Computed example of a mutant assay.
Amino acid sequence: MRSGNPALSESTFLDLGSGSVVARPDQAMTLNGTVNKTGLLLLLAVLTAAYAWSQAIAPDGSMTPAGSLYAIGGAIGGLVLALVTVFKKTWSPVTAPMYALVEGLFLGAISAMFEARFPGIVFQAVLATFGTLVAMLLAYRTGMIKATENFKLGVFAATGGIALLYLVSFVLSFFGINVPMIHDSGWLGIAFSVFVVVVAALNLVLDFDFIETGVERGAPKYMEWYGAFGLMVTLVWLYVEFLRLLSKIQQR
C-alpha cells in the first residue's frame, strides 16, 4: 500500500521485525481516536497561529520583524519535528502535538504576510482547505474515488515530482534563479498551482485509506497520533498551496 504523504508508508502500521501488526485488541488504533487527535492537533495549530498572527502585524497594518522570525523558525522547527516523528513513530504522542504547535507559528506568520498583501485571502484559503477536506472525505466514503494501487502510484509519483521541483527551485534561488512556473502569476503559474492543489487533495484520499487500513489491521494505539500527524501534514500543504494559488489569481 502506498501513500503520497511521506509521513505514511507501507510499513507504518506494521512490526518491521515480523511483518505483522503487534497491538492487542484493547490497545489498538481506532478511527474515533484518530479523528479526535486530528481535531486536537488542528486546535493547537490554530492557537499558535493566532498568536503568531498577532505578533506579525503591527497596529498600523505593517509587518513586524517577528513575522519573519516565526515564519522561518516555524518552518525549520516543523520540518525537524516532522522528520523525528517519521523516523520515531513511537514518539508521535509527544512529537505530533509539538509539530502542530510549531507549524502553527509558521502558518500564522505566512498567513499574516499574505493577508497584508491580499486582504481576505486567508479566509478564502481556509474555506477552500476545509471544503476540499470534506469533499474528499465524502468522495472516499461513498466510493466515488477509490484508492486503487494504480491510483496510489500515480499520486505518489506526482507528489514526488512536485517535491523534486520545489527542491530544485530552492537550490537555484541561491544563485538568483527563479523557476517561473512556480512563482509566476501568469496562466502557466496558475495552472501549475491548480495542479499542485489537485495532487494535495488526492493525497487526502490516500491518507483516509491508509488510516482506515491501520484501524482494520489493529495498529498500536500510538498510531492514532501518527495517523493524525500524517493527515495534518497534508492539510498544511494544501492550505499553503491554496494561499499561493489565490495570490496568483489576485495578482492578475
Rank of each mutant, 00 (worst) to 15 (best):
M136R: 07
L138F: 15
Y140R: 07
Y140A: 05
R141N: 13
R141D: 12
T142G: 14
T142F: 15
T142I: 07
G143C: 09
M144L: 15
I145S: 10
I145D: 13
I145P: 11
I145W: 08
K146D: 11
K146L: 10
K146Y: 02
K146H: 09
A147Q: 04
A147P: 00
E149R: 12
N150E: 14
K152W: 08
K152D: 12
L153R: 15
L153W: 03
G154F: 14
V155F: 10
F156R: 09
F156D: 13
A157W: 06
A157L: 15
A157G: 04
A157F: 14
A158L: 08
A158F: 13
A158V: 06
T159V: 11
G160V: 03
G160Y: 10
G160I: 03
G160N: 13
G161F: 09
L164V: 04
L164K: 05
L165H: 09
L165K: 01
L165T: 13
L167W: 06
V168D: 12
V168N: 08
V168R: 02
V168S: 06
S169Y: 02
F170C: 00
F170D: 08
F170K: 03
L172H: 03
L172V: 01
L172F: 13
S173C: 06
S173F: 03
S173M: 01
F174P: 00
F175D: 08
F175E: 10
G176T: 06
G176M: 01
G176S: 01
I177M: 11
I177S: 09
I177H: 12
N178S: 12
N178Y: 07
V179A: 10
P180G: 07
M181F: 05
M181H: 10
M181Y: 08
M181R: 03
M181K: 02
M181T: 11
I182F: 03
I182C: 02
I182G: 09
I182N: 05
H183C: 00
D184Y: 06
D184C: 01
G186I: 02
G186T: 02
L188H: 12
G189S: 05
G189V: 01
G189F: 05
I190Y: 11
I190D: 09
F192T: 01
F192G: 06
F192A: 02
S193R: 00
S193N: 08
V194Q: 09
V194K: 05
F195H: 13
F195K: 03
V196M: 04
V196S: 02
V197T: 05
V197G: 08
V198E: 08
V199A: 08
A200D: 11
A200K: 01
A201E: 06
A201D: 00
A201P: 00
A201Y: 02
A201M: 01
L202W: 07
L202M: 11
N203Q: 09
L204K: 01
L204V: 03
V205W: 02
V205T: 12
L206G: 15
L206T: 08
L206E: 15
D207T: 10
D207F: 09
D209Y: 06
F210S: 14
F210H: 15
I211S: 04
E212P: 00
T213P: 01
V215K: 04
E216S: 15
R217I: 03
R217M: 15
G218T: 09
G218Q: 11
G218R: 03
G218D: 13
A219R: 00
A219F: 04
A219Q: 04
A219I: 01
